[in-house]
Design a protein around this nucleic acid. Structure first.
Length: 928
RNA sequence: GGGCGGUUAGCUCAGUUGGUUAGAGCGCCUGCCUUACAAGCAGGAUGUCGGGGGUUCGAGUCCCUCACUGCCCA
């Protein structure tokens, strides 16, 4: 006997319990593999590669938002589905990212509140603070994830600064250096004056802002009264000007070639040079050259052998000794400089100009291009492999459009600036020699310079870009690098991973980097059988599923300032995890953003409630059966119940529908169509199982009389089998509810410790072609038409009346065989079949049958006439359209036979209905 | 400036290789507490598929063009 379920569905009462159970019981762990045993497994015929998936590691500083929840829901659905299919090991690896800048900022903010700074504290004590912070707050987001029921392997949880991962990062850096792919130099980088570090191109976001463009006159040396007018949007950088450049073919400036101009305010002579890079249309066609503070100017400086003059420090303050601007903030200096220029009558114009401003992705400060010494990765060799891997199909993108975006970006990739002037992160394994100024880059902390042997060496203070370590994760989480050159059994089993599920926002940051680093570092790791690894086997994952952005109900981006952020944890508290998961899944169709709607979540909680009550109904009847001494078996198996040709129509039909649903869910999940899987489950469980099957089966669930027991038992058997299978089918999407009901169904003693470990039902092809679909469809349409007709003639809900039917003998036979369900579901007193319907009654017709209810009707003649007229018009149009096509020789010649036949039968139906509608219209009373 | 999407019911979205009368959820209207469920049941209304042109026997679906809109890159 099943356990009793409480009268109302209360997700909060069940979800915490199961979330905790799943973690405590460690149901989803894949123990680290033993090499010998693993080898035996891999050579057996039954071996199938495991389904492996890596959680995009959230920042330790992170708080769970809807995007995380969508991402995790999708991964969890797929992992649960694969695990239940049972053909492959399923492994989902969780972890968190140390998130250099973000975490450092968080702790710096704390320090600021205490009135101190990291500099005052010093590097080591500061790092200690960060670790302390991480220990206290770092687990928050994973705890939230546990609550959502994600079936990750918690025993494998990592942190990107764990010792083993840090060693791997060092190994990767040193190897790249040995391969000559890492270089160090002074280049223009994006500099954040607030974070005081270099950041990569990707970490700069561009924002269109209204700005100004100023035109400034530079006096020509030796020619009083002559000026060269340049245009600039950043006048403060003029302090570092080393030249003025014009286009060589720009005739307006031909006379200035080879001359020198006086840099205003600085009193410095600088040359006028020519370079074809200059756009003649932009501004005045003359451009100031500031190599230390602009990437284009830097390139010009290189070409023309100009020196670079830095005029700004790490914090964005001017460096210009002996000038009034020294030490001023860049924006203060700008105003001051403009004012001074104006006073000297050198400011010609100031025009409004929309400009694209680079701001720091993290702190939103305006980024400054700045010349500084950084470490770079020569990316081309890695990019080539990463391009080839995708081009040869070793990695597939869904939706496919991201393949193009990826390839386009890869083709135009720039060297990767790896160094960050932060403290929190993986410190670059390079030591600078005080004696010879050379760098020693090694795995183990050295005691002397590898170039000159001096002991006066100090490790460089920079750390690595956070994405360098996360880009290595697919290899490092499975044990790379390997001390003895042999891959770990874990690596052999789980690399390449199967799938990456993520948002497009980190396509370049993370996905592209993993592909490059994964292909690069796994290439020399031999396959389990010792053979060399091909590029296709070197990829970090075989599939990439890129999901949408979660927006608010109106499709607007969620943002704190707009106040439209929906907190997943709060929403889960209100409606239950299952309802939120189902909502996200049902809206996750590829390529479109998700407009997350609370109304829809409410609807899906209703769905959960519906299932809950269906379970109560099933349990109630199981208990009645037990009391009546009727045995009912419950089984959990991979195969769905077979269709018994002798069983009543409803049993055959609901079983066939179940098979159809299982097939759709299986196919949909295989294509990441979470929306289709959800919709198909929704309409099966609510539309078919609850609305139709449960109502029909009530006829047979009679336990009072022993004569009915055989029928009741057969009915219950099907009812339970279908319901139990449906629970398993639904469980990847609604794990909590199904777990709770499933355990209760088995009275707390289910065949496996979790429904997530039970088999995923598999449809049989034969069941998908079953006559019951058509037969049941006919009966359903009869019931629906009768109900509609009752409503139309104003019958009271509870009233019962006889119904007259006119139909072909075949249809008649079907209806007769299923009279009981018709009487109950349509509230009909009795069915009378006749050759002609009584004329005193208003009939309702379909192509298959006509029916008339014997009831004192109250018909609104005007409304009826209106309705019938519309019907006639519609049918006439349909008929005309069908005739036009059928009369077209081209159509008959070229269209497939099935289409022609379909149209012919549709034309026949329309014709019958038209006749019937015209007759009904004519039969209406003339008045009113 | 370059590239990629989107425009289908009041709202948010599906709509597979062109093929019969374009669907779902929510919302709306009407009637029902029909003992699993009012978080429910039953019935109902609502679309010139952004505009224009083309290809085709046949276009929401393919092509061109215009409009609007979103995103990415520079």
């Amino acid at each position: 006997m099943p356990q009793e379920l409480s009268k109302t569905y209360d997700p909060t009462a069940i979800e915490d319990r199961w979330a905790e159970y799943w973690v405590r019981e460690q149901l989803f762990s894949q123990p680290v593999l033993q090499p010998e045993r693993h080898f035996r497994e891999q050579i057996s015929d039954a071996y199938k590669p495991s389904f492996t998936i890596l959680l995009p590691p959230p920042n330790v500083t992170g708080r769970l938002h809807m995007g995380h929840m969508l991402n995790q829901t999708e991964m969890d659905i797929l992992t649960r589905w694969q695990r239940m299919r049972g053909e492959r090991k399923a492994l989902w690896v969780p972890g968190t990212d140390h998130a250099g800048i973000a975490t450092q900022m968080m702790v710096e903010r704390q320090l600021a509140e205490e009135g101190t700074t990291r500099q005052q504290l010093g590097r080591e004590p500061f790092l200690q603070r960060v670790w302390d912070w991480k220990r206290v707050y770092g687990g928050a987001i994973l705890d939230q994830m546990k609550r959502l029921g994600a079936t990750v392997d918690w025993s494998r949880e990592y942190f990107t600064m764990d010792d083993n991962l840090s060693l791997a990062v060092r190994e990767a850096f040193v190897r790249l250096h040995e391969q000559g792919l890492i270089y160090r130099g002074a280049y223009i980088v994006n500099w954040c004056p607030r974070c005081q570090t270099a950041i990569s191109d990707l970490e700069v976001v561009h924002e269109d802002r209204p700005g100004k463009i100023w035109e400034i006159r530079y006096p020509v040396v030796g020619e009083p009264g002559e000026f060269l007018t340049i245009a600039t949007t950043r006048p403060e950088t003029m302090l570092g000007d080393v030249a003025v450049v014009v286009h060589p073919e720009d005739e307006r400036y031909a006379a200035f070639h080879g001359k020198r101009v006086m840099l205003p305010l600085m009193g410095r002579e600088i040359p006028v040079i020519t370079d074809a890079w200059v756009s003649r249309e932009f501004g005045t066609g003359a451009v100031k050259v500031t190599p230390a503070h602009d990437p284009n100017d830097f390139a010009i400086g290189q070409r023309h052998g100009l020196r670079s003059l830095s005029v700004m420090d790490e914090q964005g303050r001017m460096i210009a000794e002996d000038t009034p601007y020294n030490g001023l903030d860049r924006f203060v200096a700008r105003e001051r400089i403009l004012a001074d220029l104006e006073a000297q009558d050198l400011l010609v114009a100031a025009r409004e100009h929309a400009l694209s401003v680079g701001i720091c992705d993290r702190c939103k400060t305006v980024v400054e291009p700045r010349l500084s010494e950084q470490w770079f990765l020569r990316i081309q060799p890695l990019a080539e492999k990463a391009i080839a891997a995708v081009e040869q199909g070793a990695i597939r993108f869904t939706p496919d459009q991201y393949r193009k975006i990826y390839l386009n970006w890869m083709a135009n990739i720039h060297d990767w600036c790896l160094s960050r002037q932060l403290w929190w992160g993986h410190r670059i394994p390079a030591w600078e020699c005080a004696a010879c100024r050379q760098m020693t880059v090694v795995r183990e902390t050295p005691s002397q310079c590898s170039h000159c042997g001096s002991a006066a060496i100090t490790q460089v203070s920079d750390v690595l870009d956070t994405w360098f370590s996360s880009g290595l994760l697919p290899v490092t989480v499975f044990g790379w690098p390997f001390a003895d050159g042999h891959p770990s059994a874990d690596f052999s089993e789980f690399y390449p991973t199967s799938l990456l599920v993520t948002g497009f926002d980190i396509l370049f940051f993370w996905v592209a980097r993993m592909i490059m680093l994964g292909c690069w570092f796994s290439a020399d790791v031999p396959m389990p059988d010792g053979s060399p690894r091909t590029l296709a086997e070197s990829v970090p994952f075989r599939d990439v599923y890129i999901h949408a952005l979660v927006r608010d109900a109106h499709g607007d981006k969620m943002s704190k300032t707009k106040g439209n952020v929906v907190d997943p944890i709060e929403t889960v508290r209100q409606y239950g995890t299952d309802a939120v998961r189902f909502t996200l899944a049902s809206m996750a169709s590829p390529g479109t953003d998700i407009a997350f709607s609370v109304a829809r979540t409410e609807g899906n909680r209703a769905f959960a409630n519906k299932i809950w009550n269906a379970a109560r109904f099933v349990f109630l009847n199981l208990n009645r059966a037990a009391e009546a001494g009727i045995p009912v078996e419950i089984t959990t198996s991979t195969a769905l119940p077979a269709i018994d040709d002798e069983a009543p129509l409803e049993d055959r039909w609901i079983t066939a529908e179940l098979h159809r649903t299982a097939a759709v869910v299986h196919a949909s999940l295989g294509e990441y169509r979470f929306d289709e899987a959800a919709q198909s489950l929704y309409s099966f469980i609510w539309g078919s199982f609850c609305d139709w099957y449960l109502e029909i089966v009530k006829l047979r669930l009679q336990f009072a009389e022993p004569r009915g027991h055989a029928a009741a038992r057969a009915a219950l058997q099907t009812l339970v089998a279908v319901f139990e299978s449906a629970l398993r089918l639904l469980s990847p999407l609604m794990p909590f509810l199904t777990e709770e009901i499933w355990h209760a169904l088995y009275n707390g003693q289910p065949p496996t410790k979790s429904i997530a470990l039970a088999a995923f039902p598999v449809a049989s092809d034969a069941a998908l072609q079953n006559a019951s679909f058509d037969t049941m469809g006919l009966v359903q349409s009869f019931i629906t038409e009768t109900r509609a007709q009752r409503k139309e003639i104003g019958m009271e809900e509870k009233a019962e009346a006889p119904v007259f039917v006119h139909a072909s003998s075949k249809v008649r036979q079907t209806l007769q065989q299923n009279t009981a369900m018709i009487l109950r579901l349509a509230r009909v007193k009795e069915l009378s079949f006749c050759d002609a319907l009584p004329t005193r009654l208003t009939a309702r017709s379909t192509a298959a049958f006509d029916l008339a209810i014997d009831y004192a009707r109250t018909v609104d003649v005007a409304a009826e006439r209106d309705k019938l007229s519309k019907e006639v018009a519609r049918l006439e149009k349909a008929l005309a359209s069908a005739d036009r096509q059928l009369g077209n020789p081209g159509f008959l010649a070229k269209a497939p036979a099935a289409v022609v036949e379909g149209l012919q039968s549709q034309r026949a139906d329309s014709s019958i209905l038209l006749t019937k509608a015209r007759q009904a219209l004519a039969a209406l009373p003339a008045d009113s």
